[in-house]
Design a protein around this nucleic acid. Structure first.
Length: 317
DNA sequence: CGGTCTTAGTGGTCTCATTC
DNA sequence: GAATGAGACCACTAAGACCG
């Protein structure tokens, strides 16, 4: 289970938070104000280990490799998640950040819901498992890994009796440089379509808003979360499990939902302080979903050093 | 002319749909 | 019936374009 709370004081020293809520639309800008250093990595490490623990145990058991990092057999030592290719690690970082922000800044997010993040869904990243399998028999194997299907992140709000009354579903993206074109491609799709009238290159409309709009009312991740709770800690989550099952099997889904979009990366060189990538005054015109929307922008400087430093330190002294 | 941004191209697996 | 294509998703990099 994911039990480690976010390192609040380290976050406060590292980031300035500017949150706004307009009706059912929340926007949170997190700007780095302190350089990334070893102390920050040390502070975040327990949270990241906690987030990846379930997947680490699951994958290593599946593939049949030892969890002890000092195991001597060649190619048979624990390596998730650090052994993943760089692109995949970037993606994982964004997804953990989605959870971290949800927990650490719940007061500033739309609705001010006290979110719970009982466990992360990384074990459902199917291609990682087959990659680790390849790696176990050929440690020199190098290839890219496909992203996980379904929601990047799922959190829940429980009522006093432990029943799930709302779900937060996150889409998380990392980009090394958050320039206008890079962000536009994320939000509106790649610029590989052609305008039928002018012949100009235009966005293909397959971006984040498209994904969020068309996602099923009840996210697939909720079922995955339910299964993990059943497997890992059924006694303490009995009410949550039962209510999730009811929500999923209901003929007409009534579960309340918040959509979360997290964009993380390094500031563009020409970025001005406090400028935003997604306007905060009102939800984007492209957002058609009737659910609450929360946008989070995490603007870093030299963020790769944080990701690489963090992931290479997990489960190591 | 130099720095920054944009565009185009690349990798990787598996399944389902379409075409030959 | 077999080969090809597209779509699911995570991003980076090289080279050319642009701006001051």
């Amino acid at each position: 289970m994911h039990t480690e709370p976010p390192p609040l004081s380290a976050l406060q020293a590292w980031l300035d938070a500017y949150g706004t809520v307009e009706d059912r639309y929340g926007h949170l800008l997190l700007e780095q104000i302190q350089p990334i250093d070893q102390a920050l990595i040390d502070a975040l490490k327990p949270y990241f280990e906690s987030a990846h623990l379930d997947a680490r145990e699951h994958f290593h058991q599946q593939v049949g490799i030892d969890l002890h990092p000092d195991a001597t057999a060649s190619g048979a030592h624990a390596c998730y998640p650090d052994c993943l290719p760089i692109v995949a690690r970037r993606g994982l970082f964004g997804e953990v950040i989605a959870g971290l922000v949800t927990q650490a800044y719940a007061d500033e997010l739309v609705g001010e819901h006290p979110w719970s993040v009982p466990i992360f869904l990384f074990r459902f990243h199917a291609d990682v498992e087959s990659y680790l399998w390849d790696l176990r028999y050929d440690p020199s194997r190098k290839r890219q890994v496909f992203g996980r299907f379904g929601s990047d992140f799922v959190g829940i709000r429980l009522d006093a009796t432990g029943r799930v009354i709302r779900v937060i579903v996150g889409e998380a993206k990392w980009r090394a440089s958050l320039t206008d074109s890079a962000v536009a491609a994320l939000l509106h799709g790649e610029k590989n379509a052609t305008c039928p009238t002018t012949g100009e290159k235009i966005h293909n409309g397959q971006g984040i808003w498209f994904e969020v709009n068309r996602d099923s009312v009840v996210p697939k991740g909720l079922r995955q979360l339910q299964r993990l709770l059943e497997l890992r800690d059924p006694i303490n989550h009995a009410s949550a499990i039962a209510s999730m099952d009811a929500a999923i099997t209901a003929a007409t889904p009534t579960l309340a939902r918040t959509n979360l979009v997290v964009i993380a990366g390094n500031a563009a060189k020409k970025r001005k302080k406090l400028s935003v990538l997604v306007p905060w005054e009102q939800p984007p015109a492209e957002y058609q979903s009737g659910h609450d929307l929360q946008v989070v922008e995490l603007i870093l400087d030299g963020g790769e050093a944080l990701i690489d430093g963090l992931y290479s330190s997990l489960w190591k002294a």
